[in-house]
Every structure is written in structure tokens, then in C-alpha cells.
Write a protein that binds this DNA or RNA. Structure first.
Lengths: 199, 199
DNA sequence: GATTATACTACACATAAGGATAGTATTTCG
DNA sequence: CGAAATACTATCCTTATGTGTAGTATAATC
């Protein structure tokens, strides 16, 4: 990305500051007024910032301005979908199965490749996973032996420990009250990356 | 704050969704178009949302709309200290005892009043807390019966369930292998707010 | 049963705001 | 040096946009 002039940096700072404060961007005229310059003067600066890739504009729309740089620094938070009931056959991340989104520190999960599940039941109790916990899952079609995975069992995502055996797959709960599930074909949604529990 | 009608909730969802996507709010006309209703129809809804305090408007300004509710979900990441060994007598958050910092979603803990501990040992196993887990603690000098607290025992912070009895305090592990600790005087560091475990 | 709130349509108006033209002065840079 | 970029002013045009009036229909409330 190209270098900004000091003036352009000032303009950009104003834009981001304004957005921060008002939650919507300023108009060209407001920007002009803030710097006591002409409208075209401000307009040129904004266009220059667009050309250099620091902001995005939409033609003929008021305040249709988005700061693209600066935004990346905000990537410390990832917003990932929280899945509810999963429609059979539908893509995992189909909007229908979204129960909302959760924000987690970005280094916990590459967003886009991750989603969250609310744990139901105590089948993983002995792995220290309790009902109500938030499970962060990284999307994967398969898993390694012994990993905890989210698998699609009867239209809902369930956490189980994954084992590939001779001709079958064993999905093992971590609770003696639950028998292992043996199956030839199971849909692995992803592997467990983190557990978050709130008190 | 007043109750929204389903239609108003739809409108509000659209507004927040639009802002999320474009980083600036929609115009009245765009809102109208999105719902295939007249401009005044959309305008009335927006005015109703303002009246009920869910959004703020500025007169005669395009897109000058701010969603005030929902804003709490706009949390970012808080960086809180991760405590290691705690020097006896020293203030809990003395820099000497820092073993680093960890990033957690800001709404999990007001930073400044919180810190993190790396769980050691399995004394809280039956509460689903495992060795290696990250415990988020909100600083507090005392606690309510039954709460899980971080207490200073022999120069290290330990998680235990807290009970105030007649003349003593009982710190109870959640693992039958560990006997409860009875004490007259214990330093409560804070109460457990969240558990984060990474795989 | 009257009144207020909701959920709209259709039309109209003033102005807010983007964008263009024309021009000036200074600075950067190959 | 000359071209291109920067940093502006002043004026104008067009469109985008908030807001108002008038009216309809239905549901909630008192």
C-alpha cells in the first residue's frame, strides 16, 4: 500500500475518528469544514485516499465511505457463527443453522474456517467439557485418531472423541454412561480447538 | 427500554446488519427498498426506533443513524495479566507475579479488575476444570457461598469452591482425592468468571 | 367505543451531498 | 527542466435523501 502524505494521514485520521465517534462516516462537506478547506479540496483528499487503497467509496452515495486500512488491525477479534440445530444435508454454515455469532480472540480461531457450538449434555464430562460450554470448532472433513471432533449425529452437532478403526469409525463419549457410536459414515464437522465456559 | 414490535425488530436487524456489512448506515430509501415498502413506511419505523431509544438520529443528515442498543456486543479484546507465582504479601497484580498477558473477549471480563490463572492440578476436575485450563478471575476480596474462587494458598493461587462456615472458611476441591481446607484466614483473590481451554 | 399505536401508500419539497469544471500555487521526482 | 502529484478556491449541476402532508387499514389499549 502506498505511502500517505501528512495531510492525507490527517484526513484519514479525521475520517476514522469521526466514524469512531459517530458510528457513521462524515460527508465530504463535513470533512471540508473540519479542515476549513473547500469542498473540492476535501473531495480530492478523499479520492486520493481511495486511490491509495485506504478507504473504499461508493459512487453517488452520501457518507458511503469505508476505511479499509486500520480495519485490519481490528482483526484481533474474530466473529464466528454460533450454530444451533443443523438442517440435514444443508451446508454446515448455511445461514439457517446460525443461532447467532460469538466474538473470540482471533488467535483462537481463523474465522471463516471456524464456528462455535453450545455444548449440550454431559457425554464429554470426563474430558472436562460441560453442558453449556462454548466449543470452538475448526472446520475439517476428517480428523486424527483421538481428537475431539464435532460430528453430525441426527441433525445436531455433537462432540465426541474420534477413532478410525478397521472398517468403521468409533465416536467415543467421555462418560461411561454413554456407549460408543460405531458407524461407517459420519459427517465430521470439524475438530475442537477450544472450550470457553463462563460463570 | 420499550418493547419492539416484530416488524421494528426486523428493521433494527436490517440496520445493524447493513452497518456491519458496509460500515455505514443505510438511507431511509435503502431501508424502504430492502423491505419493499414505501419511503415513509420505512421512515416511520426508523422514527419509532428512535423514539424507543434503540437508535439515535441527527436531523436532516443523510445516514446519520447510530444504533445505541446492540452496542454492547461491539466489544473488542481485553488483554489481562496472566499470573504466575504470587509473591507472598505483595499485591496480587504486582508486576513481579505476571507471567505474561492473555487476550480474551472484552465482555468476558472488565479488564483492570480481572486477571488470568493457568490451572495446575486436577483438584477441580469434577467441576470440569482441568490442568492447563485458563481461568479468568474477577478480582474480589470475598465471595458468596458455593462460588469458585481463586485463593492464595502457600504463595500460589488455587481454585477452590468457597464456603463460609461458623467460625471458619472451607475451601472445597471438586475431586474426592482432595480434602477440604479449613482456615480462619485466607486471601481471596477473586471469583471465577470463565474457563478457556485450548486444544 | 374512542383513541392511540402500528404499518403502510402516494406524492411533494427543500436541502444535503456527491461530483465536475476551471483555475492557482507549491512540491516532488524522473 | 518539465511532468505529475499535491493542496487547495470558487462556482455550478444533479442526484440523493430527510422530511412533510394526506390518507387507508388494522391491531392494541384504555
Amino acid at each position: 500500500m502506498k505511502q500517505l502524505t501528512t495531510r492525507q494521514q490527517e484526513i484519514l485520521d479525521f475520517l476514522t475518528g469521526y466514524i469512531e465517534k459517530n458510528s457513521y462516516p462524515p460527508t465530504v462537506r463535513e470533512t471540508a469544514k473540519a479542515f476549513s478547506i473547500s469542498i473540492k479540496g476535501a473531495y480530492d483528499h478523499i479520492k486520493a485516499l481511495e486511490k491509495k487503497g485506504f478507504i473504499k467509496l461508493q459512487e453517488n452515495r452520501s457518507r458511503a465511505l469505508e476505511v479499509v486500512s486500520r480495519r485490519e488491525s481490528d482483526s484481533s477479534v474474530a466473529e464466528i457463527p454460533l450454530l444451533g440445530a443443523i438442517a440435514a444435508g444443508a451446508p454446515i454454515l448455511a445461514e439457517e443453522s446460525w443461532a447467532g455469532t460469538v466474538k473470540i480472540p482471533a488467535d483462537y480461531a481463523r474465522s471463516g474456517a471456524c464456528f462455535a457450538l453450545r455444548v449440550q449434555g454431559d457425554s464429554m464430562r470426563d474430558a472436562g467439557i460441560r453442558s453449556g460450554d462454548l466449543a470452538i470448532i475448526e472446520q475439517r472433513p476428517t480428523a486424527e485418531n483421538g481428537e475431539i471432533v464435532a460430528a453430525l449425529i441426527e441433525d445436531s452437532a455433537t462432540l465426541k472423541r474420534f477413532f478410525r478403526e478397521n472398517n468403521r469409525i468409533r465416536l467415543q463419549a467421555e462418560n461411561p454412561d454413554y456407549a460408543p457410536i460405531f458407524t461407517q459414515d459420519v459427517r465430521i464437522l470439524g475438530k475442537l480447538k477450544a472450550i470457553i465456559r463462563r460463570y
